[in-house]
Amino acid sequence: MERWKIVRAFTLGPLLEAAIPKPGNVSRFRDFEDLTFYHFLFAETAVTGVYYEAVKTAELLRKGILEPREAGLGELIKRAVKASREAQDANPNFGIIALSIPLIMGMAIGKNMLDARKKARLLIEESTVRDTMEFYRAIRIANPKGIPSGVKYDVYSDDSFRELFQDGINLARLAEMSCEREMIFCEWLNEYELSYSTFGRLYELIGELPLEDAVIRAFVEMLANNLDTLIVRKAGVEEAKLVQENARKVLDGELSLEEFDEFMREKGDLRNPGSLADIMAVSLSLLVLRGLRIELRDGRVIGRP
């Protein structure tokens, strides 16, 4: 697959995700107190160079010049997070980067989009303890909300690096331990199951609805069927369940989108479904890679595969 086609898709997908007014998220119409639409614009365009390097590295893997354990996932994620942070002062895309880089490399190694998810899982399985250490350094740079402290392999404890080395914790083992706390790790382990199923749902919906309506519908369905782990970490599992219940009411016609959005924002960003938004960004990247283009009809933007 052509290098810049991959990079373009994984740049445009997150920009679309940020622009479209989904319930509880930053959009071109709504900001949070400490996170704006502009943060996403600067962050996502800042990482394109690292994404390009990830594709080039993957081509060396495909040719057998490098072994999978030499992919350097952790280093690439850290470099992308650093580039994002240098361009703006918030954390709009750590999760997107962590999801995207293994899959970007999988696209360059695999035969097609379906094969790419298997190659991404292989790279995660073959990662090294050094990858995990670099991943920890990336977390420290991004400083995402809701990271627990005082736990084994505490991200913010310098002792954790010694513990990771002693116990041989690569990215796959880290994901196994952390899947319940963060959906990104579940995606790593499950070959991006939710990202790909959401991509499939988007592909169906853009045949029926304008682009924004299709994305919003798919996102509400995601909220109705999954507990967002960022909400769980920030506000607790009961709040996450309440979000899920209200999303189901939207689908059942008992609550309007506008009412749902106001509910999502009434406690600031505590109900911001950031983990599912990250997965939606990757799903949109897959849709772009599949050939998404837009047309303007009667003032509405229509997506076409």
Rank of each mutant, 00 (worst) to 15 (best):
R137F: 09
G106P: 02
N93M: 10
I65T: 14
V55D: 10
G146K: 08
G110N: 08
M107T: 02
E59T: 06
G110D: 08
E59Q: 14
G64L: 07
E67I: 02
A116I: 08
L99V: 07
E126A: 13
A138L: 12
K118C: 03
A98W: 02
L41Q: 04
A87P: 01
N91P: 05
D89A: 12
S157P: 06
K145F: 08
L66F: 11
G74A: 13
A83M: 09
V129I: 15
A120P: 04
S160P: 05
R140Y: 06
F42S: 02
N143G: 01
K145H: 08
L122F: 06
L35N: 04
R62Q: 13
Y136L: 13
E134V: 09
K63F: 07
L123P: 00
P144W: 07
T57H: 01
L60Y: 11
A138V: 12
L99Q: 01
A138M: 11
I96A: 11
L60N: 12
G95R: 05
R121A: 12
D159S: 13
E126V: 02
A43K: 00
S157V: 09
R121L: 14
E134Q: 15
M113A: 10
S157I: 09
M113T: 11
M133D: 13
A71W: 00
K119W: 14
A80C: 08
L76P: 00
G150T: 13
L73W: 05
L73A: 04
E53P: 00
E126T: 06
E163P: 03
R85C: 02
L60D: 11
H39W: 03
P148S: 10
I65M: 12
V151E: 10
F135W: 14
I141T: 11
E126F: 05
L73F: 04
K111H: 11
E44R: 02
T128S: 14
N91Y: 05
I96V: 15
T45D: 01
L66E: 06
S149L: 13
P92E: 05
L35C: 07
T45E: 06
I141N: 04
G146I: 12
L103G: 03
A120T: 07
T36E: 00
I109K: 02
T132H: 08
K82A: 14
Y52M: 11
V47M: 14
K56P: 00
F40T: 04
E163M: 14
K119Y: 09
G74S: 14
D131E: 14
S127N: 05
I96T: 15
H39Y: 05
V55R: 04
Y51F: 15
I124P: 01
Y153A: 11
Y52A: 15
A58T: 07
R130F: 10
E70K: 07
R62A: 15
D158L: 12
D131H: 13
V155A: 12
A90C: 09
D131Q: 12
I109S: 02
I124S: 01
F37G: 00
R62Y: 11
T132N: 07
D158G: 04
P148C: 09
